[in-house]
Each structure stands twice: as C-alpha cells, then as structure tokens.
Design a protein around this nucleic acid. Structure first.
Lengths: 159, 159
DNA sequence: TCAAATCATTATTTTTTCGTCAAGATTGCG
DNA sequence: CGCAATCTTGACGAAAAAATAATGATTTGA
C-alpha cells in the first residue's frame, strides 16, 4: 500500500501553484525545477491536472499554469482519484461478488479489508484541502491525530 | 494508493491456511488452484511468508504449508509489512527533513499527508487479525464502520 | 535405494509503470 | 509577419514490478 510516483508528484505540483500569490503563475520549467523532476515529466502531470479541471493553462510568452479553482475548495481525494485512474474505487466493483475475473466470486475473505481500507483513505483525504498543505503543517497533523487517537481506543476483535 | 499484487495474494494465501481445520495443511498446487494463480507464483509468496515466520513448511510427500502461529495472533499490519518491504514506513524517513534525495528537505508540504496516511492504514490493519478474515465478514466491517462514522463528523479545516 | 512428491532458490521473461523525446499548436512581441 | 516562449500530445525507451521457468534439495514410502 503506497502512494505512486504520479500521485505524489502531481499533488506536489498543485501545492506549488496553491502557494503562489493571487494572480501569479508558474511555467513548466519553473514547476519542474522546484520539484526536482524533468520538464517533460512535469508537462505530462500538468496535462492530466489540466484535463481534470484543477489548473488553468495559458500558452505563449508570459504563459504558465495557475489554479483553476480556489485551493480551499480542492480536496486531496479528488486529486488522487484523477492521478490514479479511480484505483481508489475499482479494485472489486462491489460487495456482491459478480466479477468474473476473480476466483473469489461471492466468497472473498479480504474484500471487506480492501473496501474498508479504500474508504478509510478516501475519507481522510476528503478532509484535507490543498490550502491546508500550504504553509503550516499543523491542521493536517491535527486531523490525522484526531482520527488516530480515536483509533487506538478500539481493541482487536476475535481474539 | 493501492494494494500491490504481492500484498493481495500473499494475504489471500494466508487466509486459505487460516481457514483450515486444526493440523491440516495445503500444498503449493492446492494453494495456487484455490487462488487462481500459478504454482510458481504461489511458491514465491509462500517462500516470503515462510522466511518471515508466518507459515511452517514441510517438504516431501505429505508435505505442505500450515500456519506457524495462531491466526488470532497474526495482525494484518505485520503481513503487509513483510509483503511490501516496509514501504509502509520508509517513504520519507522522518519529519526532520534529512533525506538528501529529495528537493524538499525540511520544507515538504505533503509529508504530513504521507506520514498521516501510512499511520492511518497501519493502525487500521493492526486491529484486524487473520482469524477475523475467516468466515463471517462482520467483525472487520464493524471495525471500519466504527472509524468511518467518527471520521464523518470531522469537518474540513482551513475553509 | 530409488522414485515420486514436495518445498527452496535463483534466473529469465513479461507486463506495467514511469520518464523522455520530438513534433505540433498557440500566444505575445518587436 | 516572424521569432521566441510556452503548452499539447502521441510515440518511444527505461525502470520497476510481477509472473514464469528452471534447477536444486528434502522427505516419504514402496
């Protein structure tokens, strides 16, 4: 269970834009330089993010990228879904066990884990906005700690 | 953010063993057949799980694999760590920003997210035992729902 | 002891993901 | 207009992950 390179760097690129002063923008080479990746790589990531409506791009001299929507309105869960092709949701379609490709149709021991995990992650990410990732790390930390401390009070089942 | 093939199938193989009656065992071809994977693939997974001490293997006629430890004592977090080479923990070493390989030393906007996410997942997995994955899915569902409902009461920050 | 069944281990191939390249399109400016 | 800066897009190559293959070792039982 890990964050893919595309998820990580796509998110990082958006954070760069979110940290910009009102009305400012960044070019591909600038974004690439700040993230330590190649311009080509940044180009592909920004292309994805542009298609998904997170950023606005302008071509030509004085062109560049800026956020299309306010950073306060963009939740991390939306971003991750775009960067990872809905992998958050499509592992097994549903609880009903209809997938032909899987030998565990209707009797899958780990499906509740997979679904529960994805829901847990998506829910956590839906509570964090891009704006929170700029500047202080406090509010993000606080959000995870709140959930975490509640977590720890729950004892393992079935022992 | 997804579960890797190795994590998924390794976990599935263990579930098969956990579902066995006391004293029984399964051979590689049997495990492979039940999981819809090749014998060679199952062999490599079981080799990993054997090295990590989860299963006991016996060679020769009448050989096979069985759990080394009681299913009630094996937490999913332990299994995932072994199957994914500690990826749960090693993305960025720490909060202090000492990693040379990353341009964001000491000033990483998404580090709290990565660390928080991994802690969230690991904590959830540490509350589920192999035994819970056998038979009824109820207890696992209940665990996730408990966390989930608490989650939903927390509003996004910084808006 | 020998053959069959079974696990152990390393090497190779295949597939997927990631990153780069190159040619094209758009915009601004002199 | 024509050049330079910039994004766009599809094709290509490299790297990582997954699956397979191949060879070796151990055990049981006839």
């Amino acid at each position: 269970m890990k964050i893919s390179a595309q998820e990580e760097y796509g998110l990082r690129c958006l954070v760069q834009l979110a940290a910009l002063p009102e009305g400012a923008s960044l070019t591909l080479p600038q974004i690439a330089e700040r993230e330590g990746i190649s311009t080509a790589n940044a180009g592909k990531l920004m292309w994805l993010l542009n298609k998904a409506g997170f950023v606005h791009s302008t071509r030509g001299t004085k062109g560049g990228y800026s956020l299309e929507r306010p950073a306060e309105d963009i939740r991390l869960s939306e971003i991750i879904k775009v960067l990872d092709e809905d992998v958050l949701n499509k592992h097994c379609g549903s609880y009903t066990g209809v997938l032909d490709s899987c030998v565990h149709n209707g009797d899958c021991g780990i499906r509740p884990v997979i679904i529960g995990l994805h829901a847990l992650v998506e829910n956590a990410l839906s509570q964090i906005t891009l704006a929170q990732l700029v500047g202080s790390e406090r509010s993000v930390d606080a959000m995870f700690h709140r959930v975490h401390s509640i977590h720890r009070t729950v004892e393992p089942q079935g022992v």
